[in-house]
Design a protein around this nucleic acid. Structure first.
Lengths: 187, 187
DNA sequence: ACCTGAACACCGTTCAAGT
DNA sequence: ACCTGAACACCGTTCAAGT
């Protein structure tokens, strides 16, 4: 419904990349989705690599904004750590999609350099937020918080991947619960 | 060097799928790799889906055999759980490759049904082994062992994915260490 | 039995051309 | 300013044909 073609392309490309990855993102299908011909996409983005880079950049920017909002609204650090897995759950709720950056992480070898960079920034943003939250709980020393933040990020991404591979969102919840039971995440 | 073309194809397809996934597995490139034309592949496998299915089947069979061997050779259950992450480390050691089934798990939407099935069996085999090992340690009740086995599998797969996305095998080791520090894996 | 060339409908991309 | 048709070199796949 947006009158802005560039916006429509970015949104449709994001949804497609979350389901099919960079390689599976088809310029022809994407064009059809937004009601134009494949050639027209190149008026808005010089290449598939540029489009994907813009999509990945916006993806981590949106994630960062969402996490910052949660940081401001939630005062209890333990509550923040309960919130984090919710952000990864949303992709699964959205027709069994997954984190664009996890998918593209798998596609590492075939990713244009600028896309790689944005994908890594997504992880950086999430890890930095988790680190802040972990330190705030007081349960981790600042020294150990970086490593544990990475561990939480990797484990949650892995849970999303496993749940997606069976299209089983209940499995995702079970995995997160187990992370809490074992102590990776605060109970 | 093998005189068996079918064998060469399976091996080359496995290595390619570990780096590029199902979608990124090119029949033309694969054929060149084993010294034949793309059309010739169809003499040995009726379709790309059949080839990928055979590759994934052998992949979990090899994994199962390796784990059973470890089970027989390692008597201490805690030692077995120390061994498990080693199996996922090997792919990263092998030119930053990743688990074929993790990659294909991401590609869930675009996977032919028979391939999906073999991919899921890989997870089943690993989870069943982990469950056995966890119960043997006596640290988990049999009731809780299934969930925790899945958690370990998902977390290790996530660690591999994150490490691959930065081509950083030291990060993998750090993540596994953090899993031990937090209690997801026995220290 | 095993492999190939040529063809099919696809793909990302370019570019001259349209409005 | 924004979009398109036609073309390019690719892809998985088929199939008749080669040895």
């Amino acid at each position: 419904m947006s009158s802005n073609a560039r916006e429509d392309i970015l949104e449709a490309a994001k949804k497609s990349a979350q389901a099919h990855g960079y390689g599976g993102l088809s310029m022809r299908d994407l064009a059809a989705e937004v009601g134009m011909k494949a050639a027209s996409l190149y008026y808005h983005f010089p290449s598939k690599a540029d489009l994907a880079s813009a999509v990945a950049k916006r993806y981590w920017e949106d994630a960062a904004a969402d996490l910052e909002k949660a940081w401001d609204e939630i005062s209890d650090p333990a509550e923040m750590l309960r919130y984090f897995p919710v952000t990864f759950r949303r992709a699964l709720e959205n027709e069994n999609r997954m984190c664009l950056c996890s998918f593209m992480g798998a596609e590492y070898d075939d990713l244009p350099e600028p896309v790689k960079k944005e994908v890594q920034t997504f992880a950086d943003v999430n890890v930095a937020w988790l680190k802040k939250a972990l330190v705030a709980t007081g349960s981790v020393t600042p020294d150990a918080s970086e490593a544990q933040a990475k561990a939480v990020f990797a484990a949650v991404a892995g849970a999303q991947l496993m749940a997606r591979s069976r299209a089983d969102i209940a499995l995702y919840d079970t995995l997160i619960d187990s992370y809490r039971a074992t102590g990776l995440l605060p109970a």
